[in-house]
Design a binder for these strands. Structure first.
Lengths: 168, 168
DNA sequence: CCAAGTAAGTCTTGATTTAAGACTTTGTCA
DNA sequence: TGACAAAGTCTTAAATCAAGACTTACTTGG
């Protein structure tokens, strides 16, 4: 599978990964949430190759996850900030971080602690059902194909063949 | 940065990504949550190169995210199943899926619909604070270094130099 | 018995991607 | 004028991946 074509897959995870699903991109986003904004700061923080960083930032901007805007003129210098769409990746990121905290932190505990400003407590993230508010886990979830899953009855003449296996 | 060494980074996200943070691995896990269990089924569903699939499955087993066990003898055949640790990745996965649903679904809606068995409703995932139960977003969260963040006072003699930038 | 089939891999080869670091551009400051 | 800074771009060698042929061990049909 070519990753460029992944965004045409009929699966929301595949389409998401086509955009943010590469290690560097996720680490760049982590830095964004930690208020890193400038090219050189990303580079220093991540020790990423400059070419790769430039490419990733450009993609994130193109996808509307970051905005690039000048923070000074003469000479013009840019910073990258999360858009609303970018901020919405927070649940996914924090879930990965907390999973890492749980399974890979040393004895001295996690390297970063997250505090909920509103209630004032350190927290772990919890996944809940948007409808009933209960905590969710994988076993309590049932999946069925939506309208957009492999075309059921009326297939447009020139429609791309869909695959036989279920593709979320 | 070499990805093999990433698990030694002092950042839970980096350590997590060292294990699951590659596109194929995340898609393999998606399939696991959709109850795909056999080598050939993963291959057919993902159209992944067999060598890469074998490698990824082996890593996931080694990390205790999947277990490999025979489902028949004569000839012995194996299946891969999520462990408890693997199941705990669900929040991260479903958050990525729902983000994709929101931003990349076509007009006919998302390809898969998730239903909460307990309450019977189709849902979106919601991130809440484990302490107060309120919905969480990135702006309501404050971060501070934990005990494990770059060694503060007493540095063991042979300790690896820590980096200057903040690494969550 | 022999041939074909199946599941789960391994191996080989050529194409992509990445890492590392030098180089470029535009402007400031001493 | 020379040194410095930020934000890139370019080059080349090394690592990783894709595609598909090959392997192993056992079953089933003729």
């Amino acid at each position: 599978m070519r990753w460029q074509t992944l965004d045409r897959e009929n699966c929301s995870l595949a389409r998401t990964l086509a955009v943010v699903g590469d290690r560097w991109t996720l680490l760049v986003l982590r830095d964004c949430f930690l208020r890193v904004r400038r090219f050189e700061d990303f580079e220093a923080s991540l020790k990423i190759a400059r070419r790769v960083l430039a490419e990733r930032l450009a993609l994130l901007v193109e996808e509307g996850i970051l905005v690039k805007r000048p923070y000074q003129d003469r000479p013009v210098r840019y910073e990258y900030r999360l858009t609303e769409k970018g901020l919405e990746l927070y649940p996914a990121l924090i879930s990965l971080v907390h999973w890492g905290d749980k399974h890979y932190a040393g004895k001295s505990g996690p390297p970063l602690i997250h505090r909920h400003r509103t209630c004032g407590h350190d927290f772990r993230s919890a996944l809940t059902c948007s409808e009933c508010g209960e905590a969710l886990d994988a076993r309590a979830v049932e999946v069925r194909p939506g309208a957009a899953a492999k075309p059921a009855a009326p297939i447009p003449a020139n429609h791309i063949r869909s695959r036989t296996a279920a593709t979320p």
